[in-house]
């Protein structure tokens, strides 16, 4: 084997190295690379890290403050449980409207999660990966539904997708789709309110992941779609899961936008929160019972997801 025939004269002469007398390291002694290997998106080093016991002591004052936070967040729920008419619970649960509302709530919230994933993940990808003019504006606009009072969101949805709305007029007249007062409308309202939670979480996940894994996939012949499906998605699974869980929780509890945009009709658009609100008008016991059902389901789902999507160390 021979070296190639390129001239030995460097393009850029080593003028700066003209007078060399300093010989630092020993001859042919390997040195450790100063460039540390970058951490992975998951934060797990490629090599198992040396077992350093990290002492985890909370800064002074954190513990009592955290206890107050937990108490503040749980006390109202405890009160709800304490107030529950346990004796009449089975009867209240088997009331005809309850199961209908529950089923509808699950359908609508899962539908909202589905729509949010379908449209929100590509949006999050674009926000995280592409630099384009007005990206910050787009992100702000996308997140606006989070701060908009949901009832206002509902009115806005009516003005956009209602029978006389900007887009609704066209949908109604040409395609024959009427969204208000339909289950589809309820899903739409919940998606409007819940999708930002998915987008913001997934975007953070995409920004946090080590993009060099995508480079590695490309060098292995994976095109953009294959890379996304087989590398990016699995790597951001924790963010995706957390985002979907947040999105679902928000959709499940959604009230204002739904009742304003989709109305309130048992079996079609009356989800659990709407049923709870109306029950509250003349029967607090029923309202409390329905709320407990919602709480129980949410608790089961969120705890169930925890192990899978929020890896505990």
């Amino acid at each position: 084997m021979t070296s190639s025939g390129t001239p030995l004269t460097p393009k850029h002469g080593p003028e700066s190295a003209a007078n060399l007398a300093v010989v630092t390291g020993g001859t042919l002694t390997a040195e450790r690379p100063p460039e540390p290997p970058l951490s992975e998106a998951t934060g797990r080093p490629v090599q198992p890290a040396p077992p350093v016991r990290r002492t985890r002591r909370a800064p002074a004052g954190f513990l009592p403050l955290a206890v107050v936070a937990v108490a503040f967040l749980t006390l109202p729920l405890v009160a709800l449980v304490a107030r529950a008419p346990w004796g009449s619970l089975p009867a209240a649960l088997s009331a005809p409207g309850v199961l209908t509302a529950l089923r509808l709530s699950l359908i609508c919230s899962l539908g909202a999660v589905g729509l949010s994933l379908l449209f929100g993940v590509p949006l999050a990808w674009l926000l995280a990966r592409l630099r384009f003019r007005g990206r910050d504006v787009v992100r702000a606009v996308v997140l606006l539904p989070m701060v908009l009072p949901p009832v206002v969101g509902g009115v806005a949805l009516l003005l956009a997708f209602g029978r006389n709305g900007l887009a609704g007029r066209w949908l109604d007249g040409l395609v024959g789709i009427t969204l208000p007062f339909s289950t589809a409308g309820a899903i739409l309202a919940e998606t409007f309110v819940a999708m930002p939670f998915l987008v913001i979480t997934v975007e953070a996940g995409l920004r946090g992941m080590d993009r060099r894994y995508e480079d590695a996939a490309a060098t292995l012949g994976a095109g953009r779609w294959t890379t996304f499906r087989r590398v990016t998605l699995p790597l951001i699974a924790p963010s995706l899961g957390a985002g979907a869980a947040l999105c679902w929780a928000r959709a499940l509890g959604e009230f204002g936008a739904t009742i304003t945009f989709a109305g309130n009709l048992p079996g079609a658009t009356q989800t659990m929160p709407l049923a709870v609100y109306l029950a509250l008008q003349n029967n607090v016991d029923t309202a409390v019972t329905l709320s407990l059902v919602m709480l129980a389901i949410s608790l089961v789902v969120l705890v169930g997801l925890r192990g899978r999507w929020f890896p505990s160390r």
């Binding site: 390129t6 030995l8 460097p10 003209a18 060399l20 300093v22 010989v23 020993g26 042919l28």
Partner: peptide, 27 residues
């Protein structure tokens, strides 16, 4: 600089290479 390893080792053309090899290099 480019070339066969032996060539570089004996005739460095930069401070970096000379340092690596452990030679005094002057110009």
């Amino acid at each position: 600089q480019r070339g066969a390893p032996g060539e570089l080792a004996s005739r460095p053309r930069s401070r970096y290479v000379a340092d690596l090899i452990g030679l005094n290099l002057y110009r």
